[in-house]
Each structure stands twice: as structure tokens, then as C-alpha cells.
């Protein structure tokens, strides 16, 4: 029995690792608006970019870091729940309830033998009668509310930006909030990368706006509002490891020892 317990715990650790392998997504929330921005990856030059933000209902959406197929399963589950709430009670699914339902579903996997946890982390945003909300979901079965959150590769840099600016954006307009989100996302970029209309996804939901997703050409108008589309911090100097962890933020997450290249999960 002990062995099994250890194994499931280990699996959860791997799942959390899968999130770190996925490209970064950033979420921000004020009382009136919530925003998700995400960095999309393409497996190869000629390939398409993996979707990072998924609409769940007119008032609800998620962004993912980790295994995209797992996220699709979870988003379909949420869509069903949202439509059921609409069908049976004639009211929208509350953001908190959505996050709790996800957490409960994921938690079941962690205590059953033979199953595996979902290998994906999600940021859930929604707008309901109690205002705009942002939740971070983890496959361990936790979901917590934030005013700013970032998950995925090099997300610590984004989190650092949010920690420094969350008081400033608390009362900002939806436009300003998106710009703050893009600033945070930009900070997660590697040295040779920059935000462009191909690799950036933006979504917003709030007081006077249904869940809206901006992709491709629609993204440019928002990028134009930034002073720079490349990581400002890496641009100035390379010694920028100023966050509270001991990792070098410019490196891709270090490979676990003994991890084979072929074992690597395909994360987004």
C-alpha cells in the first residue's frame, strides 16, 4: 500500500513538472475584469501553434500549461457543467464553482490506483454576480484564487512582474489590464524570443464584455501598445536573476537527472 501511495504522489510531482515544461500563461484580475495572456508554441517551424486559451461559456474561459489533450478533456467537462447549470437553473456557472469542480475531478485521480493525474495546469477566469475572478488550478487537486498568476516555463519572471504591479493594476481599465498581462508575459520570454501576433493569445472577460479571444491578426493592436515586444530584462543585462528562486530564469527548466530525451512529454 505504501508503495502505491508513493507512486501516486510521484505522479503528481511529474504532473507539476509537465506544467513547467509548457509555455507560459499569465492571468490577471481586478474587481471588474479578468485577463488571460498566453505564449503559444509550434512544434516545428512549419507547424501550427497549439491553442492555449479555450472558451468555456460566454462568461468563462481557461488557459493551459502542460498537456494540451488533458486540457481539452477538462475544458469539455467544464463546458458541460456550464451548460447544465444554464439548463437546469437558468444561471451561469460561477467561476469559483468551476474551479472547485475541476479540482474535485483532478483530486479523484490522485487517490486511485492505476490512474494518472492530469498533466496540465489551468488558469480559469470568469465574470459572475460576484465580479471578475481568476483561479489557478493544479493537477494535485488544488485551486486557489489570485489577483495575478502565471504558470508554465519561466513563469517566475512573469509572477515577479505581477507581484510588483498588482497594486497598480487593481483599478485599471480593461485595456491597461491587457497591457500589464502582456508585460508579464514578455518577461517570461527567452533572450532570443519576442511576442508577435503568431505566438501570442489574449482573452478578456468582465463587466461589459463577454469572454473574448484575440488571436493572430487581432493581437497586433495590443502588441502595438507595448514599448517593446522582447524581454526588457534580458535585453539590459544577463544578470537578472532577481526573483526569489534559485533557478536561472534564462534557462529552460533543467532536465531531471536520468530523464531520457525520448521520455520527454509533449507539452504546450
Amino acid at each position: 500500500m505504501m508503495v502505491i501511495l508513493l507512486l501516486t504522489h510521484q505522479l503528481v510531482e511529474y504532473a507539476l513538472e509537465a506544467i513547467k515544461q509548457g509555455s507560459a500563461v499569465v492571468g490577471l484580475a481586478t474587481k471588474e475584469y479578468a485577463v488571460l495572456v498566453a505564449l503559444k508554441r509550434n512544434a516545428e517551424e512549419l507547424g501550427s501553434y497549439q491553442k492555449k486559451i479555450i472558451k468555456v461559456d460566454d462568461h468563462l474561459g481557461i488557459a493551459l500549461a502542460g498537456l494540451a489533450p488533458d486540457a481539452r478533456v477538462l475544458s469539455n467537462f467544464l463546458r458541460e457543467q456550464a451548460l447544465n447549470q444554464k439548463m437546469i437553473f437558468n444561471r451561469p456557472l460561477s467561476t469559483e464553482k468551476a474551479a472547485t469542480l475541476l479540482a474535485d475531478k483532478a483530486q479523484k485521480n490522485t487517490q486511485s490506483y492505476g490512474g494518472r493525474p492530469y498533466g496540465v495546469g489551468l488558469l480559469v477566469i470568469g465574470y459572475d454576480e460576484t465580479g471578475a475572478h481568476l483561479f489557478e488550478f493544479q493537477p494535485s487537486g488544488s485551486s486557489l484564487e489570485y489577483v495575478g498568476a502565471a504558470i508554465g516555463a519561466r513563469s517566475q519572471a512573469g509572477r515577479t512582474y505581477l507581484e510588483r504591479s498588482f497594486e497598480a493594476y487593481a483599478n485599471s481599465t480593461k485595456e491597461e489590464l491587457i497591457v500589464h498581462g502582456l508585460n508579464a508575459l514578455r518577461d517570461t520570454l527567452a533572450q532570443d524570443k519576442e511576442l508577435n501576433s503568431k505566438n501570442t493569445s489574449i482573452s478578456i472577460v468582465g463587466k461589459d464584455i463577454d469572454f473574448t479571444l484575440y488571436d493572430d491578426d487581432d493581437v497586433q493592436q495590443w502588441l502595438d501598445r507595448l514599448d517593446s515586444v522582447s524581454n526588457a530584462r534580458t535585453g539590459v543585462n544577463n544578470d537578472n536573476n532577481d526573483d526569489d528562486d534559485n533557478n536561472d530564469d534564462n534557462e529552460e527548466p533543467t532536465k531531471k537527472e536520468g530523464e531520457d530525451e525520448e521520455d520527454k512529454m509533449e507539452t504546450d
Binding site: N90, R91, E96, K97, T100, D128, E129, T130
Partner: peptide
Amino acid sequence: DYDGHSLRAPH
């Protein structure tokens, strides 16, 4: 749930 979402007559 205790999340501030009350059940009202239409629901």
C-alpha cells in the same frame, strides 16, 4: 458552496 451566489426565484 458558500460563494455568494444565492438561489433566487428564477433559478
